[in-house]
Design a protein around this nucleic acid. Sequence first.
DNA 1: CCCGTTACGGTTGAC
DNA 2: ACGTCAACCGTAACG
Length: 269
Amino acid sequence: MEQSTFGEVNQLGGVFVNGRPLPNAIRLRIVELAQLGVRPCDISRQLRVSHGCVSKILARYNETGSILPGAIGGSKPRVTTPNVVKHIKVYKERDPGIFAWEIRDKLLADGVCDKYNVPSVSSISRILRNKIGGGPIPQNPSPTYETKNQVVPCTAAPTPIYNQFYPYSCPPPSMPAVPTAQMAPQHHTLAPLGAARPPQTTANCVTPCMMRAWAASSHSVNDILGFRGGIPQGMGQPMQAENGPSIGQNYNMNYYSMKPTVSPMYLQS
DNA sequence: CCCGTTACGGTTGAC
DNA sequence: ACGTCAACCGTAACG
C-alpha cells in the first residue's frame, strides 16, 4: 500500500511493518532458536524482534503448536444460519407477540443453538425485521441482553473448533534489511516447546489454533508461506509439507489455487 | 537483567 | 462502493 509497507525500524534495529505479522521465516526462526535452548532475550536480540513479540510467538507456539499469526480482519462466522432463521420464523409465527429474548431462550432450550452460538437479542430482532418481515419486536424485558463481546466459538453440534486448514493470512517470509543468513533454512522438525501441546494425530493434522478458526482467508496459504508456484520466498529452500509435525502441516495444498491475487506486503510498495 | 503483560497505533476483511 | 467493526499485528514500556 503505502510507503510504510517498507517497514519501520524498532529499537533493536529490526525491520517490521506496523500492523502486520512478522514474516514466517522469522517466526519460525524464533521457535527454532528457542528449541535449541536459546533464551528469549537472546532470540530477541539476535533476530532484532522485540522481546514481547518473541514471548508472544513462543507462548502461542507452546499453546497451539503453530508459529503462524492469527487471522486478521474479517468477521466471526454467522450465527444466524438458515436453520436458526427458520426456527426464529417458526417461533414468531406461533407466537407473534414473542419477545426477542424469549426466542433466544427458546433457541437454547430447543437445542437449536448453544450458549456460544446463540444469536444476540438484537440479532434476532434484526432477523425478524429483515428476513422475516415481522417488524421489530420488543427486546426490552430481557435480562440477558447482550450485543457486545459476544463470544461465538461455534461449538454447536458438528462444528469443528479448529478450522480444517490454517486460516490465517500472513505476508511472505521475506523481509528487507533482515539478514537472510539468520533465516537459514532448517529441516523443520520442531518439537513442542513444552508439554502443553496436544499430540499431533495425522500428517494432515490441524494445529489447534484457537484464536480465529472462522476466518478461512482464502489467500492465506500463499500469504503464509509466501509460496509463488511452490517456492517460498525469503526461504533458502522450499518448505515441504512433510516438514516436521508442527510447522507446515496446517495447509491444504488445494488452497494454492484458490486466490491467485495475494498481497505480499513485503514485496509491494 | 529477564520476561509477562498491555497500551498503542496500525492493518485487515466480513458485513 | 464505502464505512464500520472487531479481530489481529509488533513495538515499547511497565512492573
